[in-house]
Design a protein around this nucleic acid. Structure first.
Lengths: 121, 121
DNA sequence: TGAACACTTGAACAATTATTCAAATGTTCA
DNA sequence: TGAACATTTGAATAATTGTTCAAGTGTTCA
């Protein structure tokens, strides 16, 4: 914490600093947003989420479309489930997963749209 | 890779699987989106980005508003710079940082909006 | 030129975590 | 009940990375 003086653009920038300090998000809110981004930052999880945005699926099929092992996918599904991104429903021997958080679609699709990838449906 | 049989909901789910396989994003696109989410998933970086979305600032002020050390902030700024999220411009002894990627604002604000945090300006 | 300031950089440490393999649990059905 | 299948779980490993501290570079100005 070696904060001592200010920068040279004191007069120009201090207004911005003031604004930031007034309007800054709470640490809790920042943690929340970062958590979502963290969950979506791993390709193995992102593939699962992208697949589930097209429709519900069981673990075996998720492993197939996301190029992973059943075990690996199951581990990631647990993380996604713990964070309320997906939900699970058992049907006989199978467990059917689907998107639990309605916000996820918009967050993901906005990002895709802004990174010049197309998004269908 | 122990993929052998299918799930019980074969008939219902295989259409979805087919759709996913046809419309799946390229690995490169997925990597790109995940990279952005990864950059935004760290509170220390997120605070810097949120601050810069309000206006340009020098390192000292960024450290102040983001509750970090100058050194720590500088390290994170390098990561953000390497990934073209922020850009730097020297003014005398100071370096003024600003948002370089116009897409970032929408991606961040969409996420905030969907996580019941308000976003001003 | 050299002192003071603003920022960057490198090395080291600790923490987080994705992946794999093997074993366990849950479910159906003959 | 037991065999076969679908999924989960735990432990172990390896890789990534945020933070800190100390030292370095770049810039101004007396």
């Amino acid at each position: 914490m070696e904060k001592r003086l200010q920068c040279e653009h004191k007069t120009e920038h201090e207004l911005t600093v003031q604004r930031v300090k007034e309007e800054i998000l709470s640490s809790a809110d920042i943690e929340k947003v970062c958590k979502i981004f963290h969950l979506l930052s791993e390709p193995s999880r992102m593939k699962i989420v992208l697949a589930l945005l097209k429709g519900e699926m069981c673990v075996y099929h998720l492993a197939e479309v996301s190029d992973g092992t059943v075990s690996g996918v199951s581990h990631q599904l647990r993380v996604l489930r713990d964070n309320k991104i997906v939900k699970a429903k058992r049907f006989g021997k199978n467990v059917e997963y689907s998107i639990a958080d309605g916000h996820i679609r918009n967050i993901v699709e906005t990002a895709l749209r802004h990174l010049c990838c197309r998004v269908e449906e």
